[in-house]
Design a protein around this nucleic acid. Structure first.
Length: 572
DNA sequence: GCCGTTTTCGGCCCGACTGTTTTCAGTCG
């Protein structure tokens, strides 16, 4: 019973209670619990009722329901609701523009309980005449159904971020645009995003909005007003643009950056202090006088808190940490001194080692580890033992030539299906740095996969496990690992785990990386670069680290070369 | 259903846009 399954059950209960018109706060309680469970790095199935109640948003009742779900594979309340509410109605809720009220109305009045029926009824104009529904609403529902059919899922950060930056640079060209910032989950660098939020200041909002909806990337205008417009891009992601006053920019940025859960917490705190926060500023309850709003720092200060970095704003303990003055000093991209997972033309990279080194120097690095694939990965030009030794000669020669820069001779050694490494220790011993990773047998049992990683961690010459969970966003699920065991082993042998910065991997993900930090496991952030342009992806990895509360001192490749070498020697 | 420097009952974040209304409900973020 995974956390995700529990979260899904609670969300389903929330949906059905909503359809029944239940108390909205009770519904919110289920959703909040679901969200917190999903973000948890431990499995709720392993917790007893008492520990469950320590999770924020989970009290006696929900703790019992989790235990019930884990032990009996079902929740009685859920079963009963399912009998009461047709599953098609839940599908109808997924249609953008349709909420619980409309869904209930069409069900009660017309007996519609599937999307197909809804579509037919709209086309036949049978919805018109229901309370609050006329032709226009029918059209909007049909649009929403079309949108749903297009498969509106979350977009990986690595795809959405460049799209957002492109739009920002277009809008920046307008003379009517003052300040401009990306907000929303994109500013928090969440690994997938639902839409792109952009915030601008302007004295002539309508001109900005007019230009916005006419951008060449825009396929459809969803809504347009003086402070808020939304469009659908051809790439299939929605962009919301908001225009605010200079004087409220900080409050608006804070508000639209979210997360929702973080904002609710901030607002609750404000309320206790006799303040009210909205996107225009912080206001005193008694006389409605504005006390802050121009900058985000001001907003947090007004409620007695230090600035909280956007990446932390998930209501996962950051508000409490801010209150107690123990916010982390998050790692920054400029702290990184070397990339430790780099491919060259010797295997499947696009550039020579020399070209790669030059690009790394350009990045301001002091060192890199060249880690081409081992023989098991024939498809990626994996190297035989002799090739590795040849490659090492080239690296040695380059090191004699380069000043103030060091290329570490390494390898990305494949962990075979059997659990053995692709090279024996005699070869690995001769290298400066060894990255081990899984590239095959993804579908093995959890037991087998975990054993493979454990045996790699135990090998004295392995320094780091690369992309430990193997996931590729939108393509491949994580391996079914026993992550807790992997973490324990990494801690015991002090082997590093990689945050792979390749935008579609981001592996370790934030919640695991945070758990690793808490356990005292060393972390490296690397790009898995196959061409020199990809060194720039390091930012994505650093952002995962920031979301995981990591500081400079938690990450090995922030160390200067000498210290770094001393540190990895101790791993052997 | 949760939660407690206003607490064990009575609160629970806040506003824009749309389409239906003639002052507002529903949806969304």
């Amino acid at each position: 019973m995974s956390n995700q399954e529990v979260a899904r059950a609670f969300n389903e209960i929330a949906d059905m209670l909503e359809l029944k018109g239940e108390n909205p706060f009770r519904i919110r309680a289920y959703r909040r619990a679901a969200q917190n469970i999903e973000a948890l790095s431990v499995e709720v199935s392993e917790l007893d009722e008492e520990s469950l109640q320590k999770i924020p948003g989970i009290g006696k009742d929900l703790a019992q329901k989790i235990r019930e779900f884990v032990e009996r594979k079902t929740i009685k309340q859920l079963e009963e609701l399912r009998k009461e509410i047709p599953s098609g109605l839940l599908q109808i809720l997924l249609v953008p523009g349709i909420g619980p009220k409309t869904a209930k109305t069409v069900y009660d009045r017309l007996g519609i309980s599937t999307i197909e029926e809804l579509e037919r009824a709209c086309k036949e104009g049978r919805l018109s005449g229901l309370p609050g529904i006329k032709k226009k609403t029918e059209d909007n529902i049909l649009k929403g159904i079309a949108m749903l059919k297009m498969g509106r899922e979350r977009m990986p950060l690595g795809r959405a971020r460049p799209l957002a930056e492109e739009i920002v640079s277009e809008l920046k060209k307008l003379k009517e645009v003052g300040r401009i910032e990306i907000a929303g989950s994109l500013r928090r660098w969440k690994e997938t995003v639902k839409d792109i939020d952009i915030l601008v200041t302007s004295r002539e909002p309508m001109k900005v909005m007019n230009a916005f909806v006419r951008l060449p990337q825009v396929q459809d205008v969803l809504l347009k007003g003086p402070t808020k417009s939304s469009v659908m891009l051809r790439e299939g992601i929605q962009v919301d643009l908001r225009v605010v006053e200079e004087e409220s920019f900080g409050a608006a940025l804070q508000y639209f950056t979210g997360s929702k859960a973080h904002n609710i917490k901030i607002r609750e705190r404000a309320m206790k202090l006799g303040l009210k926060i909205n996107e225009y500023g912080v206001f005193r309850e008694e006389d409605n006088k504005k006390v802050a709003g121009k900058t985000e720092e001001e907003v947090y200060e007004a409620i007695g808190l230090p600035f909280i970095e956007p990446e932390l704003r998930e209501d996962l303990g950051e508000v409490e940490a801010a209150e107690e003055g123990r916010l982390p000093e998050l790692i920054e991209t400029s702290d990184i001194r070397g990339d430790l997972h780099v491919h060259s033309r010797w295997s499947d990279g696009a550039h020579s080692i020399e070209e790669v080194a030059e690009a790394a120097i350009e990045m301001g690095y002091e060192y890199i580890a060249i880690t081409d694939h081992s023989k098991g990965l024939g498809i990626a030009g994996g190297l035989q033992a002799e090739d590795i030794l040849e490659e090492k000669k080239e690296v040695d020669a380059l090191n004699r030539k380069l000043r103030k820069f060091r290329i570490l001779m390494g390898v990305e050694v494949d962990i075979r299906s059997s659990g053995e490494l692709d090279f024996d220790e005699e070869i690995l011993k001769k290298l400066d740095f060894v990255v081990a990773s899984i590239h095959s047998g993804f579908r093995q049992s959890s037991k087998q996969l975990t054993r493979r990683l454990l045996s790699a961690i135990r090998c004295p010459y392995v320094n780091v496990i690369a992309h430990p969970t193997g996931r590729i966003l939108g393509e491949r699920q994580e391996y079914e690992l026993d992550m807790e065991q992997v973490l324990k082993a990494a801690k015991r042998y002090q082997k590093a785990l990689e945050i792979n910065a390749y935008p579609l991997r981001l592996d370790l993900k934030d919640s695991y990386a945070r758990r690793a930090k808490e356990m005292g496991i060393p972390i490296v952030i690397s790009t898995d670069t196959h061409m020199t342009e990809q060194f720039r992806f390091i930012r994505y990895g650093v952002e995962v680290a920031r979301r995981a509360w990591l500081e400079k001192s938690d990450v090995l490749n922030t160390l200067p070369l000498k210290e770094f070498l001393r540190r990895i020697k101790r791993q052997r």
